[in-house]
Amino acid sequence: MTVIEARALSKAFTVSVKKGRFRRERRQTAAVDGVDLRIDRGETVGYIGPNGAGKSTTLKMMTGVLMPSGGEVTVCGLVPVKQRIRLALRIGVVFGQRSQLWWDLPLRESFALLRHIYRVPTADHAARLLRCRAMLELDEFLDTPVRQLSLGQRMRGELTAALLHGPEVLFLDEPTIGLDVVSKQAVRAFLTELGAAGDTTVMLTTHDLADIERLCRRLVIIDHGRVVHDGTLEALHARYNSRRRVVVDLDEPPPAPLTLTGATLDATELDGRRLTFGLTTGTAADVVVQVARSAAVRDISVLEPDIEDVIAKLYKNT
């Protein structure tokens, strides 16, 4: 079942630029430029792209904050701006850069308030809160006013706030921004579990590619407001020919330059004592066997294709 559908979705902003002392020129910037997207129920989609690509703008159009300037979008079968209130009851939103909690209220009271605003049955609310408290470890700061929370504590609160009404779709705009390793892991584990349950659709933007590796089977990449990739991470690696690599440390540099079958020599370091091979048709074992014939191998490691490399390639190419 399709939960999110966008057809030629666009948003142009008019900005006036100062030209000289009094003249101002009005210019249109296409923040989102014809995005087509279908997301099914239960999918966790990573929506990524370089700064200014139009990720936040897309999410704002899907949540009913911004009116699209072209194309169409439906979420849960509703038109976001037109049916804003009905949609709001069915989605959860976290904008990492901006708090949605009440500044002067303790988290506990914010959560209670949300129960009334979203008209959640008491038992459901209590059950969901209990789960979030356990998984996101909220108990320590549940009675602290939001303004006194650290970024990571607040973010865990925001995530809880977005989930207490049991939304069908979760929009997360940089939910791990500024979090330490432990907080990040807590958030990721939580989202993994949510994804595994299979009934919540998650659309997530992030600049931390480890989030993507951990959480998203599907990756939608946009640049300059246009979709430049829509598929799995593996498909992206295939497209850019990313390969697994084998790093071999030797006691002494090999007496003669090595040429292997099934792999290419990509880098030579430490005066020839560390060689990095990219696998084409061979396996890691093939490489080690071939190298061992001409030099003494001290250590080996196998590297999976690097997500940062491939994404960087993609950003540069577009």
Binding site: G64, V65, I91, F95, Q100
Partner: peptide
């Protein structure tokens, strides 16, 4: 300041 974002995602007028 864009604080209106947070207002618009709530199911109230």
């Amino acid at each position: 300041t864009g604080l209106m974002d947070a207002v618009l995602i709530r199911p109230l007028g």
